[in-house]
Nucleic acid binder design. Sequence first.
DNA 1: GGATATTTAGAACATTTGTACTATTTTTCT
DNA 2: AGAAAAATAGTACAAATGTTCTAAATATCC
Lengths: 219, 219
Amino acid sequence: MKSASQDNTKNNTKETILETARVLFNQHGVESITVRHIAQEIGISHGNLCYHFPRKENIIFTLYRRVVEGMSAQVALWKPEDLSLALILTALHQSYALQYHYKFLMVDFVNIMRRIPEIREDFRQIFTVRKEQFAFALVMMQHQGVLRKDIPPKQLEYLLLQNYLLGDFWMSESEILYDGEEQHKPRFYADIAAGLMFPYLTAKGRKEYARFYEELDKG
Amino acid sequence: MKSASQDNTKNNTKETILETARVLFNQHGVESITVRHIAQEIGISHGNLCYHFPRKENIIFTLYRRVVEGMSAQVALWKPEDLSLALILTALHQSYALQYHYKFLMVDFVNIMRRIPEIREDFRQIFTVRKEQFAFALVMMQHQGVLRKDIPPKQLEYLLLQNYLLGDFWMSESEILYDGEEQHKPRFYADIAAGLMFPYLTAKGRKEYARFYEELDKG
DNA sequence: GGATATTTAGAACATTTGTACTATTTTTCT
DNA sequence: AGAAAAATAGTACAAATGTTCTAAATATCC
């Protein structure tokens, strides 16, 4: 069966290449890692690697698509009716953890976008969607009384942009300045991003915020 | 006189190389621009260029030092006694404009830091100084009654980190997502950064904030 | 004005890198 | 088992890149 051989559990060379490339890109950056590096790390010839991925860009693009798909899979689970502050904070922490798995994409952000225009355009489009989603979430939170209603529209817009700027670049900043333990990195920066909303929370909102972090620290 | 020939008005090749490199790095990134590109743009041989800067790193490092010196020159003008919200906002907008002049440094942030460890270490050290300065400014603002005093210490720490993360990476984000006019870019993102403090301002603070932007938009 | 130092141009070099090509081995399918 | 397809290894190649070297030109200084 053809469909069986296209399972997501394919343990073939292609998958190994992608996984090895991801790790090496994360460690040393896209520019520094060559097809030969990747092949050598796996223990195959670079000729073989180029048989599976004739262009280095193909590798990058495939990995890019995976993180995007992962993100939208997370969002797809949401239902507008059970949107809450706790859910938004959960999504924040989840997406930070996922992104970190592909951190090279954001660490080499501009270079990659300049190099692969398709990614650039795709990213720009996704950004507008994300903005709308977050804007919707903010309005919902105001309806639920967890977010203050007296926020100037301009500041609400800023909040949104601050949120995505942090989301896109905490990995770069951490690469140089983070001093704590590696496994706590996504949590550390997700906390900072969550802090963007904090001053705009109502008393009820602050209570939910506190409860969320109590449970996060417990479990 | 030796000191005369070391003037800052040196109109010699070295200066031209630095200026041309800065512009090209800003436009196309550090990795894409070679010594040959720079030499060709000026109209000199790349052999000549390598006579003045035997290593490409030297060019980057010299430009890095300039932006750092420019920043600390701005800070040196401050006196603790005339510290105010307006001054902080002014400094914010000034430093955003200055940084943008050397945007390649932040756009290629991680690559450059990985490539030139001296810059990395210098940057890390400067970061701790900047943090202390900003923390001091926040306390002063609380004393003056423009910043609320009931801010949880953790959130104050987040505010600080949010501020520097935005300050370091707005140039990268803008490279892909900014749609407005080029000359308004630094202003646009400085506004967003200023918005970080907004929700923590007192009534008096918000008034000063509003007045500051009124005058900025006038003059 | 002539010696000395600085600056410049251009060739040369070694290395790297992405990609293409060829031949061989392995797998798949009937 | 045997033909066809896929995968693999290794070589080859062209372009680019940082850097070095050499010789000529220019400026500087006594």
